[in-house]
């Protein structure tokens, strides 16, 4: 096993350990791994400073084309990692430790890719360049797991956030409906909508948690076709869970809209002349 492969596998194992932790704040019982365990593929060859880039005339067009392609792929990944980092920063329902772990892992990945790019840019012969480009390919298996896993976590984080917000709104709507009911209004349809909203939010929460559970423990396949298929299937399941949760949330939002509109349409209670009941305060708008 060559050095590049060792580094790649080390990074893969580190990433797996770092991702196999509870993502949501409601499940923080597992000890967090040390963030610095996630080491990106290291650049083992000479650093760019010790091997300054020769003039362009010293690089053949073929080598230059390969360098350009490699740079483009590295830039693409670094850009995606930076975008992911911004999203992680905005996550609200995960623990601070978990966010820091993700941040450290991403930072390490970016550092490794940046160093690799600098190394590639100094390559002058095709043999060395091919070895460096292979590191890009090898590290892709880690990259292709880390990015979707974190994206699943981000989506689940958003959905759990939405569940919390909608539950808060639901409590207010329930108070309003109860007040209207006490005032004598017919709120049967609103109660049905409230019940459905509660049910949808409960299911959304469960689906979000399931998406994290099924994806967080995955490890890079390292070329194992069986493992690759398992990972793909698990990620597909996580995606389906998130979509189901999203569908629930949209349905709950629709229920909330139904209730709000229903409250507005309730007739203002009137007290008949013969009535001896005390006048009531209207809850309609």
């Amino acid at each position: 096993m060559n050095t590049h492969m060792k580094y790649t596998m080390l990074a893969a194992v580190a990433m797996t350990v770092s991702m196999a932790v509870p993502l949501l704040a409601s499940a923080q019982t597992v000890t967090m791994p040390t963030p610095d365990a996630a080491t990106p593929p290291a650049v083992s060859a000479a650093t760019p400073s010790s091997a300054p880039r020769p003039t362009s005339a010293a690089v053949t067009p073929k080598v230059q084309t390969a360098i350009d392609k490699a740079d483009k792929e590295i830039d693409r990944r670094i850009s995606a990692l930076n975008d992911l980092q911004a999203r992680i920063d905005a996550m609200q329902r995960v623990t601070a430790n978990f966010k820091q772990t993700l941040t450290t892992n991403i930072s390490n990945q970016i550092t490794g890719l940046t160093q690799l790019k600098a190394k590639i840019d100094t390559d002058t012969d095709m043999t060395t360049l091919k070895a460096d480009v292979k590191m890009i390919t090898d590290s892709y298996r880690v990259y292709m797991l880390v990015i979707p896993q974190a994206r699943v976590a981000a989506s689940a984080d958003r959905e759990v956030t939405l569940v919390t917000m909608m539950n808060q709104l639901g409590a207010k709507l329930q108070a309003r409906v109860s007040a209207a009911q006490s005032a004598g209004a017919d709120v049967s349809k609103l109660l049905v909508a409230l019940t459905d909203m509660s049910s949808k939010l409960s299911d959304a929460s469960a689906q979000s948690q399931a998406s994290v559970s099924v994806s967080a423990g995955l490890s890079p396949d390292n070329g194992d076709a069986t493992k690759q298929a398992q990972n793909a299937a698990a990620m597909k399941t996580a995606r389906a869970d998130l979509l189901a949760a999203q569908k629930d949330l949209l349905a709950a939002r629709k229920d909330a809209d139904t209730i709000v509109k229903g409250l507005k349409s309730l007739p203002t209670p009137t007290v008949s002349a013969s009535s001896t009941a005390p006048s009531t305060t209207t809850t309609t708008q």
Binding site: D83, R87, I147, P148, R151, A154, S155, L243, Q246
Partner: peptide
């Protein structure tokens, strides 16, 4: 978020 996840997968 969903679009980003799809793109990542």
């Amino acid at each position: 978020d969903s679009a980003s996840l799809d793109a990542a997968i």
